[in-house]
């Protein structure tokens, strides 16, 4: 089912954070949300996840009025802050991803165990399962948190800056994994800062500036020099990678 935003405007206190955002995100594609700091990326992802009020629909149903468990089974959300308030084991943490599928007071089913194993494997965190979260490096922790979301096997994955604190190898590995998930039919929405990673991994890009859409289009079109100048105030040089994709390399600012 499509995830559709129509005329979404969000205010936080007195400040208007998003203005009249409209976009239709499709399953089976990786959509990157990009924009300068404070452009409303996190607020938009929260609204897509049904955590902020607004006109966001999953198919024909408004996301913020769906039954919370049903919404949780469909939309997996990875927050930016990566908070883990108690020093639980990695396994316990990833288990939380199965919560929307489990009845209250029920133990883990065979299906839960399989989903958890797959999520650990997908994020290369199997060997961390018995460790405490406090013992993990920043990168390991980020992968474990992603595994938690993947364990829920959602139809949509909304990840707010999942590459932060990952080393380049794990960044590339994670993006490959997200692309593979999209290939299996999952809708993937990721907030990114790195233009080159976005160009390599995304099918579509939603470019924000001060809460307004600068562009929402297939990646090559959205990341044009004009659009990036408008969104970030940067000049880019376009180069082609080995796969023929056009990568925008920032070379200076015009602020």
């Amino acid at each position: 089912m499509d995830l559709t935003v129509t005329g979404l405007s969000v205010r936080l206190g007195k400040r208007a954070v998003l203005h009249d955002i409209s976009a239709t995100l499709r399953p089976g594609r990786v959509t990157a949300i990009l924009g300068a700091n404070g452009s409303g990326k996190t607020t938009l992802v929260r609204a897509l996840a049904g955590l902020a009020p607004g006109e966001v629909r999953l198919g024909s149903a408004r996301v913020d009025t769906l039954d919370p468990r049903e919404r949780a089974r469909t939309i997996g959300y990875l927050p930016q802050d990566g908070a883990v308030h108690w020093d639980v084991t990695v396994e316990s943490l990833v288990e939380l991803g199965r919560m929307p599928h489990r009845a209250p007071f029920a133990g883990l089913s065979a299906e839960d165990h399989i989903a958890i194993s797959h999520a650990l494997a997908a994020t290369d965190t199997e060997e961390l399962a018995g460790r405490l979260v406090a013992e993990l490096s920043g990168g390991e922790r980020a992968r474990v948190l992603l595994a938690r979301v993947l364990a829920g096997r959602p139809a949509w994955l909304l990840a707010d800056e999942p590459l932060a604190s990952l080393d380049p190898a794990h960044q590339l590995g994670l993006l490959d994994r997200l692309r593979a998930l999209a290939g299996e039919g999952m809708g993937v929405v990721i907030v990114l800062h790195d233009l080159i990673q976005a160009a390599r991994a995304a099918d579509d890009v939603l470019l924000l500036r001060e809460g307004r859409v600068v562009a929402f289009a297939p990646v090559a079109e959205a990341l044009s020099p004009d659009n990036l100048r408008a969104a970030f105030g940067v000049e880019v040089m376009q180069v082609r990678d080995e796969a023929g994709r056009i990568l925008p390399v920032p070379i200076g600012t015009n602020r």
Binding site: G50, P79, L96, G97, M99, P100, R148
Partner: peptide
């Protein structure tokens, strides 16, 4: 009856809500 919600809150309020709490 709050145990499930408390577990989810380990990940913070937004994540807990996203888990259906």
């Amino acid at each position: 009856f709050t145990g499930r919600a408390l577990d989810a809150l380990t990940l913070g309020e937004d994540a807990a809500r996203s888990l259906g709490i």
